[in-house]
């Protein structure tokens, strides 16, 4: 059974807290990707994703438009990430991980911190579309509905996002090459 976000948000507000699990299922991947990129660590990301979802649950009454749950939740995630970052010397950690992963011969995409970091650095509008497409596994049509935009805008946004990602990833490779030299 898949209903839209509005349905589940209203169910929760109407006293069916258990229905929140549908929203967790739908967005856990998206959140993990977004937070892994920002925090540079899968474990920390998982912690932050949990915190984000729990916060979202308790603040759902403040959500003006139930349909905008996704964007609103992403905003919470960003706040949570900022708070976590303040506590952590994330930059150092990410640096260490990067040098570690560059030692590997074959790139292991399940721990692709470079990519996650690049996604996390995208401006809001582009990040949303990439997150929904690859980490929420939604089709372009669904994304268009979800974000209330024409499908042409979705593909244009994707196209621009790819270009930005490639640029960031190229820079990362450049840095690694320089470090090795």
């Amino acid at each position: 059974m898949t209903e839209n976000d509005t349905y589940y948000v209203e169910r929760c507000l109407d006293g069916h807290p258990d229905d929140f699990r549908h929203l967790v299922r739908r967005y856990q991947g998206v959140l993990m990707a977004n937070l892994a990129g920002k925090l540079g660590d899968r474990e920390k990301a998982e912690e932050a994703a949990q915190e984000t979802l729990v916060r979202a649950y308790f603040n759902m009454g403040k959500l003006n438009k139930p349909g905008s749950f996704f964007s609103w939740m992403l905003g919470i995630a960003d706040n949570v990430a900022k708070e976590h970052q303040r506590k952590e010397h994330v930059r150092i950690k990410r640096e260490m991980i990067r040098s570690f992963s560059s030692e590997a011969d074959t790139p292991d995409f399940s721990h692709d911190y470079g990519l996650e970091a690049a996604v996390a650095e995208l401006p809001d509008a582009y990040r949303k579309v990439i997150l929904l497409r690859y980490y929420g596994r939604q089709s372009c049509t669904t994304i268009a509905e979800q974000l209330d935009m024409p499908i042409g805008t979705v593909t244009k946004t994707l196209s621009r996002a790819y270009a930005m990602l490639r640029e960031t990833l190229n820079k990362q490779e450049q840095t690694q090459v320089n470090e090795v030299q």
Binding site: Q28, G29, M32, R42, F109, S110, D112, L115, E116, Y135
Partner: peptide
Amino acid sequence: NGDAVGRSDLE
């Protein structure tokens, strides 16, 4: 990467 990240189960 999406597949790998999506494997986490937070429910």
